[in-house]
Design a protein around this nucleic acid. Sequence first.
RNA 1: GCUUCCAUAGUUCAAUGGAUAGAACAGGGGACUUCUAAGCCCUUGAUCGUGGUUCGAUUCCACGUGGGAGCACCA
Length: 565
Amino acid sequence: MHIHTPHQALRNAIQKAVHETFGIFSASFVVEHPADLTHGDYASNIALTIAKEVGKAPRMIAEELKAKLDDSLDMVSSIEVAGAGFLNFRLARSYFADVVSSITVAPHAWGSSTHFEGEKVLLEYTSPNLIKPLHVGNLVGNIIGESLARLYSFAGARVVRMNYPSDIGPTVAKGVWALKEHGLDVQDIHAVGKAYVLGNAAYEDGSAKDAIDAVNRALYEKSDTELVALHEAALRTTIDAMNELCAQLGTTFDGVIYESEAGPRGRDTVRSHIADGIFEESNGAVIYRGEKVDLHTRVFINAQGLPTYEAKDIGNLSIKHEQHPDWTRMLIVTGGEQREYFKVMFAAAREVFAEAKERMMAHIPTGFLTLTTGKMSSRLGNVLTADEVLGDLRAAAKERAAETRAHDVDELADMIAIAALKYQILRQAIGSDIIFDKERALSFEGASGPYLQYTHARIGSLAEKALAAGMSPEVAVTPADPYEIERILYRFPEVVHEATVAHEPHHLVTYLTELAGSFNSFYAHERIADATDPYAPYKLQLANAVKVTIANGMYLLGTTAPEKM
RNA sequence: GCUUCCAUAGUUCAAUGGAUAGAACAGGGGACUUCUAAGCCCUUGAUCGUGGUUCGAUUCCACGUGGGAGCACCA
């Protein structure tokens, strides 16, 4: 059973009425949800937009349209004219009951769609620098990427989750140099992280610049067996740590491409396009003149003949295309500081790869994550590592979890910690900087991941109690007017779709928080599992539908909702 | 200097060009012998400035102010 939203039907009916009443064919207007529920379920500004052309007051026009539309729409119970001339529509009671029914009949499908059926989305995210432990900032890309992967998948696309870690280059060389110089334990992720800090300091103060450059070259050329062995050992340590962390966060990658693989491919590709003028040589380097497309010049191969980030990315795209020639969208989630870089890289890529011209290639910029306690810098070593943050969240969650009805306290604590973290990151528009307030995240109160989880578990408990009391959820008898919660519930698929196409999971976060808030208010004001209440079966089924919606929504955010809490 | 992103309550965030700018936290107050108080109810409090476009601007445009990021061999 698939429930259609009344949106398109309303649009069509309005269009028709405007044509028949005023002879206007192509009016521009919106049909939207009013911000205030007291204004109804849908509203249209049609009367305001055609007022000039018609030559009448908007309210008069609205009245004429109302007369025309009244009783012509099954799903609409009433229409009113309000404000400056808005047409407000209220949906029929039966529509809401149908929605509740369809949700509980096919819970797993609720919110899913076929909007992106036939598409293959290559989604690249996380992509850390493999010589230091992941810090909270690295978490941002992973969390956003995973949510987008789930959203696309839920909308029918085939999604390939890809990770593109940096395992070679000057940054890595700094760490390898220091590991050797200071004889640090390459098996210890913290020691490897410390090595990077030491190497960077020695590079910047000039004391080891030449030595580190030499290490970098040696690693590219594999000319020094001791360094190569150290490099490989350090990579194993950091890759293990990365995989462990990603598993905790709920991400499993379908493919990993390392920069060391992409480098040679990219370098060859770039070189082969010097003759045709896409790239050119300059001061010993190979560059792309971005000015020809109103951008800036960037170096793709440096004077030492080594591929830079830009050539490596060309190689990365080439490998991706080879592995998945049928891709339709290639999305890369990385920090916002790379905005301008990606414009240039994509411009070059579109010249190099003819097949990319018509398909979507996009950079999804994430914001910086800063702490309320001050700035972080991995160079200076004052970062909050991802492990630390998760550890703190887990410890705080465990304290609370111990007092709950959960069977497995550790499992619940994990679920809460992850939800608390992801909610904080996904609650705001991606791309804008995130001020991470650890105290806030640890409080678990108000708008938060645990708030959603609590609401979910609360309904679970309610359903259990009702079942034990011999009540069964049904949609047969409904109260005359829909509850507020019902008037929010049916919008879920629209919100999911909006979050997907806009690449903005925060729409979903905002919605779920509103839904949970509305349910908790409903819960506080209405007896739900009351055997003497004729509406109890419907209220129970409604509560179940809310629970399904929270569960599906939380899944799309990359989190889970517990049955008991 | 050029490019680019941003500016909303004390704080952290919302608001496909719409109606009285919406939450959370913090502050003040309250209900509960009733299905989970990580909850509910009430309350104080905001669009950086000046113009422009529009029936209507937090949203679009211009200028200004303030901040972040990027701009040749890092990623």
